[in-house]
Simulated scan of single mutants.
Amino acid sequence: MSYDQLFFNAINSYSSLVKKRKLISQRHPLLYFLAVWARRIQRKAIWLLDNKNYTKTKSTTALQYRIKKHQSVLLKKLGENNMQLQINKVTNLKIAAKQINGILIHPGEIFSFCKLVGQPTQKKGYLPGMELSFGEARAGIGGGICQISNLIHWLVIHSPLTVTERYHHSFDPFPDDGRVLPFGSGATVFYNYRDYQFTNNTDYTFQINLWFTEKCLEGELRVNKELDFAYHVFEKEHQFLKIGDQFYRKNEIWREKFLKFQGGKVLDTELLTKNFARVTYTPSDYMELRLEK
Rank of each mutant, 00 (worst) to 15 (best):
F8K: 07
N150S: 13
Q84N: 09
L227V: 00
T61W: 08
K77R: 15
N200Q: 08
T91G: 03
A277M: 04
L227E: 05
G135N: 03
T213I: 00
G184K: 00
F276W: 06
Q246G: 00
T202A: 03
V189E: 11
W47C: 07
D177G: 07
E80N: 14
T282F: 00
H28I: 12
G118Y: 13
F276C: 05
L151G: 04
A187L: 11
E131C: 08
I243E: 03
P173A: 07
P120E: 01
K98S: 14
N81M: 12
V156T: 04
C114P: 05
S159Q: 07
R278L: 06
L161G: 01
T205Q: 06
S16N: 13
E220D: 15
L241C: 01
L227K: 02
K20G: 04
G244M: 07
K115T: 04
G102A: 11
M83R: 13
Q207C: 03
A230C: 03
I41N: 11
Q197M: 14
L49I: 13
I103L: 02
H168S: 15
F229G: 00
K94S: 05
P120W: 01
T60P: 08
W154R: 01
I11Y: 00
N275L: 03
N9E: 15
L161R: 03
F134P: 03
I105L: 11
A97C: 07
L221F: 03
H106V: 07
R43F: 12
H70N: 12
K250G: 01
K69L: 05
L221R: 00
L227S: 01
